[in-house]
């Protein structure tokens, strides 16, 4: 009886602590979202209040959508992220397959070489990357960003995917060889479909830092035509510091796609992290 009560009070304490931290984690985001839909006066007078019929006002959004070129920023971010993820997955999976499937001289060395980039941030090479991009005329193009993010994503992709590819049955690949499939067909038709869950995990891990990155867009592609959402909102908000409606609306617009994607995919994402990350 007493033990049951003790554990009940312990559970209550745990829930209180978790609810407390959940509030800390979510509240700032929530606050931004609700205030973005209020009139200027209401933002300052009652920041904690949900928008009511009187205080509801979308003036922030109309300012943002009227001023900044957000549609094109979104498009840029989208192109860069999707292209980089596709290349990371394709190149990373190919390299992971070569490393996990074949015995050849230099296999371990190549594995270590590719793994270097997991720990050493690509940013440290920025000085020379910019030089290279200037020399090849890629500055202020989305290609520059795609290349950098592909290089940045490959090490982790190779690492995670080769772990998973080692679990694909050798017998299956050999059955394919006996049935006359080429090594390329074995990779694309047998192995890739089987590591799809790992590919999803890698895609998420690759996507978040790319979408959120400020450094490389700022340095390699700051022109109006190539601005990404992160850089665009950074500059936009910088200009409109005093227009709270616009700032809050811009923030909300930047949060929303991430929020929606997260709510849809959170289960897969968390499963990916908990199953694949600590091995």
């Amino acid at each position: 009886m007493s033990k049951a009560r003790a554990s009940l009070s312990r559970t209550t304490l745990v829930h209180l602590a978790l609810i407390g931290y959940t509030l800390i984690a979510v509240f700032p985001v929530f606050l931004t979202l609700i205030n973005s839909m209020k009139s200027r006066n209401a933002i300052f007078r009652n920041p904690m209040q949900l928008p009511t019929t009187e205080t509801f006002d979308l003036v922030g959004y109309t300012t943002v959508l009227g001023q900044g070129d957000f549609a094109s920023y979104f498009q840029n971010s989208f192109i860069v992220t999707v292209a980089a993820i596709a290349l990371v997955l394709l190149f990373g999976a190919m390299a992971a397959f070569a490393l996990s499937e074949y015995r050849f001289r230099g296999n371990t060395l190549m594995g270590l070489y590719l793994a270097l980039g997991i720990m050493i941030p690509i940013r440290l090479g920025t000085v020379a990357i910019l030089q290279g991009m200037v020399a090849t005329g890629l500055v202020n193009t989305l290609t520059a960003l795609i290349l950098v993010y592909t290089a940045q994503g490959i090490p982790l992709a190779v690492f995670i995917l080769s772990e998973f590819m080692r679990t694909v049955s050798d017998d299956l690949k050999n059955a394919g060889r006996i049935d006359g499939l080429s090594e390329y067909a074995i990779f694309f038709r047998l192995v890739l479909p089987l590591v799809r869950p790992a590919m999803a995990t890698v895609a998420v891990f690759t996507m978040i830092p790319i979408w959120n990155d400020l450094w490389f867009p700022l340095i390699l592609a700051p022109s109006e035509a190539t601005k990404t959402v992160t850089l665009g909102s950074q500059l936009f908000i910088g200009q409109f510091v005093t227009n709270w409606n616009a700032v809050l609306a811009a923030l909300s617009l930047a949060i929303l796609p991430v929020l929606v994607l997260y709510l849809v995919f959170s289960r897969q994402l968390i499963r990916g992290i908990t199953s694949g990350a600590v091995k």
């Binding site: 394709l90 190919m94 490393l99 980039g117 050493i120 690509i122 090479g125």
Partner: peptide
């Protein structure tokens, strides 16, 4: 076994050209 090289090459090239060489060049600079 050319296919091993084919599988490794794209990742190796992009990674070396955009990450490792600039890093080395930065250290040299």
């Amino acid at each position: 076994r050319w296919h091993i090289a084919v599988f490794l090459l794209p990742a190796f090239l992009v990674y070396s050209a955009v990450m490792i060489l600039p890093l080395i060049e930065t250290l040299r600079l």
